[in-house]
């Protein structure tokens, strides 16, 4: 039996993932086909509303699809609203960019949805490939494998699986990278070269604390704090 008088303090990091990520759509039928019929994400919520505040936006429907883990992707469809910007330019329903915007930049903002294994990744690949929105790219990164496509609104959607769990040393490396990045990002001409130089200094500085933590079989957490 646990000691009921013991007060367990709440963790510092308390958030529980994505409640919903919301995007505008001018093609509700295509959006529903893509998410509900092709990917088979259940419709879990919808709201009919009007613009009552100072914004006076048109009547609209806000609707939600379950993306697993009780997380949701949501859309706004505004009746009578026309898309903004030059529709031949790169971009999506939310924004159009300059004509000369490179693709890597356009695609940099995207939503990645997690699956647990290769079977599930391939299942979603199949669902997409059988649809109007086939997989555009399947990529094996260092530790993840991903498929990519663009939904009817031009939003890039990634479905990804982890090839192996993230290790404590990768957490340490990430912390060192970010500390090095903020050290150099506010200086003159940030570059990869400067980052790697600063990282080497931090690697040496924190190695001893890391080794001590490993010996005591402690979580590497204290090492991460500069």
């Amino acid at each position: 039996m646990t000691d009921e008088l013991e007060i367990v303090p709440k963790a510092d990091h308390r958030v529980m993932g994505v409640d919903h990520a919301a995007f505008p759509t001018f093609d509700p039928a295509g959006t529903v086909r893509f998410y509900r019929d092709v990917l088979r994400f259940p419709v879990v919520h919808s709201i009919c509303a009007a613009g009552w505040g100072p914004d006076k936006h048109p009547d609209f429907i806000h609707f939600f699809f379950d993306i697993g883990n009780d997380d949701r992707i949501a859309f706004f469809y505004y009746f009578g609203l026309k898309p903004y910007g030059d529709q031949t330019a790169p971009g999506d329903s939310w924004a159009r960019l300059d004509h000369d915007t490179p693709q890597f930049f356009t695609n940099s903002r995207h939503l990645a949805i997690h699956v647990v294994d290769e079977e599930d990744l391939l299942e979603y690949r199949k669902r997409l490939d059988d649809s109007e929105w086939p997989v555009e790219m399947q990529v094996m990164h260092e530790t993840i494998e991903s498929i990519y496509t663009h939904d009817p609104n031009g939003y890039m959607i990634e479905i990804t699986r982890a090839l192996r769990p993230v290790t404590p040393q990768e957490d340490l490396d990430a912390a060192i990278t970010i500390d090095a990045l903020i050290d150099i990002a506010e200086g003159e001409d940030p570059s990869m070269d400067k980052l790697l130089e600063r990282k080497a200094q931090l690697i040496v500085e924190r190695a001893e604390a890391w080794e001590r933590a490993q010996q005591h079989e402690l979580a590497p957490e204290p090492v991460l704090v500069p």
Binding site: E197, K199, I203
Partner: peptide
Amino acid sequence: ARHAVWYSAVAGLENSVI
């Protein structure tokens, strides 16, 4: 090493340059 691994292998440079 595959592409992505190869280009992210180096974690730090001490008095050195790629």
